[in-house]
Design a protein around this nucleic acid. Structure first.
Lengths: 160, 160
DNA sequence: TCCTGATATTTGTCTCTGCAATATTTGTCC
DNA sequence: GGACAAATATTGCAGAGACAAATATCAGGA
């Protein structure tokens, strides 16, 4: 019992570290991102997904699940991006319920500049903290957690 | 240049995984925490810090920095906890500007029940995802990031 | 075809949080 | 001692996001 308690406590701490690291990094990245490109971290995330998708367009629902936003959250987010001219909505020909969010010319230009700047800033912040090997390890561990979390959240998985 | 780009891109992905994992876990923990103990993840975090501190009391500013909340955010959070009777404020005798947040009897009782339940839930969610060894590795890597982030945010460190 | 249930998105409303400004107290320098 | 800068906590205000309800459309069966 005591051993189990300690084990669980370690896990609680690990989860705590995850949250602390993330919010801490967010607080560091946000101001720089805003200064460099006038984007919030959240907007940047939405725009990156679009920038990386062939055709620069994604269904609202797809974008929502990729960005860890609820559908309503994404609607507001795209509203703001549309207002600032970086994204436009296009109706989906196959399904008239659906809508695409499309990265505009301007949005692409902004991201072409913003992505390298953000990557450079991440480099400044993270350089020397972990070795390249450690970074790969971290990435691999986090990927496992992320994938597991997604299967828990969306029981759409086939078997498990 | 191309190699550096790819390297930076890997980092961008790693940071992305960090955010995805964290928000995903948050979305899983929050409802269970709320059902078990009526607490938000944020409140739980505040209360855990108090529960783990000898004397069950912490200065507002200390609590703020521990919980990744701004001072104003913490003020509101403690307001809510005070309203629900789990925390009370006590004035600091040494420094009349300061205030302690103190875990009440009721708050302690709630946490005595909530902490094991939350740990159990973390176990359910995380079991089988990482090996014990991987979990220790993850914890150690995250701790490095967390510590580094704190030194960047608060340049109060002595040497570095 | 018409009805029913499911899906995609948006809107109303509420809570949480951060930033900037404020009040109070402390400490220091002259 | 008095003034001025720094520190602690709180408040006004505004933005962002979640949940639930509403709207529009789709898909399948009677």
């Amino acid at each position: 019992m005591t051993a189990e308690q300690a084990w669980g406590d370690e896990r609680l701490t690990t989860v705590g570290l995850l949250f602390e690291s993330t919010t801490g990094l967010g607080r560091i990245f946000e101001p720089q991102l805003s200064a460099d490109s006038g984007l919030s971290h959240q907007s940047f995330d939405v725009l990156v997904r679009l920038a990386r998708t062939p055709g620069y367009r994604l269904r609202m629902s797809e974008l929502a699940s990729q960005t860890s936003l609820t559908p309503s959250g994404l609607t507001r987010s795209v509203d703001r991006l549309e207002e600032s001219g970086m994204v436009s909505r296009e109706s989906c020909p196959d399904d008239r319920r659906g809508a695409f969010a499309v990265l505009s010319e301007r949005g692409r230009a902004v991201m072409d500049e913003a992505i390298p700047l953000h990557i450079a800033h991440i480099g400044e912040v993270l350089n020397g903290v972990l070795t390249p090997s450690e970074e790969r390890t971290l990435s691999s561990l986090l990927r496992k957690i992320r994938d597991h979390v997604h299967t828990v959240e969306q029981p759409g998985g086939l078997g498990d």
